[in-house]
Design a protein around this nucleic acid. Structure first.
Length: 276
DNA sequence: CGTGGCCCCTGTGGGC
DNA sequence: TGCCCACAGGGGCCAC
């Protein structure tokens, strides 16, 4: 489900529960929770799951979301492909099961991590330094990535530019949708070798990455397939994508059919005319 | 070392 | 109508 804009939408949606004490936590699937050393076994330290403290802050870097206690203890959440973080009002229940971790708050609301495919998970970190260390190993957040950084990090690489953009150690937060969208906006073919990009192309690409991510946030995570309004209705789910999911359809710029192929195990759509 | 391939898992939508 | 298969927003690990 999530790339950076969807995770940011989740983060913003947690604002109403910040400061409310966590009174208990239920871990329905132990293997979804890992400690700082990546262990899935052993005794769960519920203090690390924020029990007894309010969720003081919700932070994000790339696609990763962290819930922090005032002490800096953190539950770091990866949503993977199908993860969700939900805020439930008293008396409401999770639809569809797969609620792996449920935090109960002092006011009766619950914060739920559900993830049917279980590609995501929750990491328990002892302090904010541990969180900062993890995030320092990733590239800069996509919202603020510069052309200078992209060129320095990738400019000598022989790999194709699209899989390079998907590599979270180069830039954090870009996934399959926004990689295709950014490359289209920048006019760059997804299979171009990184070293072949000229200076102005790095400038256009960095600007395009920032722009598509900002637009996604403005749309409230427009890519959520199973998005539901609070009242349960289907919502607009407006598709603002120019290329993603549009293989074979006419390019919205030139009218020629968009190409589609698998590149680095991911479906990739581009305009063979507009992208060089 | 950088890189591409494979795999993890469940749900769903399209084709037959 | 129902079944089956291909595919889905991610990323860790392994062999080269």
């Amino acid at each position: 489900m999530p790339e950076l804009p969807e995770v940011e939408t989740v983060r913003l949606g947690l604002a109403p529960v910040l400061g409310v004490p966590v009174v208990s936590v239920r871990v329905a699937r132990r293997d979804v929770v890992r400690d700082h050393a990546e262990r899935r076994q052993g005794t769960l330290d519920h203090a690390h799951l924020l029990v007894g403290h309010p969720i003081d802050r919700a932070l994000r870097h790339g696609k990763q979301l962290a819930l922090l206690a005032p002490s800096g203890r953190a539950a770091l959440i990866h949503l993977g492909m199908s993860g969700q973080v939900l805020v439930l009002d008293p008396g409401t229940e999770v639809q569809g099961g797969h609620a792996h971790v449920v935090w109960s708050l002092a006011d009766g609301r619950r914060v739920v991590f559900r993830d049917p495919r279980r590609f995501g998970g929750v990491w328990l970190l002892p302090d904010q330094a541990a969180l900062n260390a993890r995030w320092a190993a990733l590239g800069p957040d996509g919202l603020g990535v510069s052309a200078k950084h992209l060129k320095e990090r990738l400019g000598r690489s022989a790999r194709a530019i699209k899989p390079a953009l998907l590599d979270q150690q180069a830039v954090a937060g870009v996934g399959n949708i926004y990689a295709d969208e950014a490359l289209f906006r920048a006019g760059i073919r997804p299979d171009r070798a990184c070293y072949s990009l000229e200076g102005p192309e790095w400038t256009k690409l960095a600007a395009a990455v920032r722009a598509v991510l900002r637009a996604g946030i403005r749309a409230g995570g427009s890519t959520l397939r199973d998005y539901r309004r609070p009242d349960g209705s289907a919502g607009q789910a407006t598709r603002a994508h120019l290329v993603y999911g549009r293989g074979g359809q006419p390019c919205l710029t030139c009218g020629q059919p968009l190409s589609s192929a698998v590149l680095a195990q991911r479906t990739t759509v581009w305009c063979p005319t507009c992208q060089q």
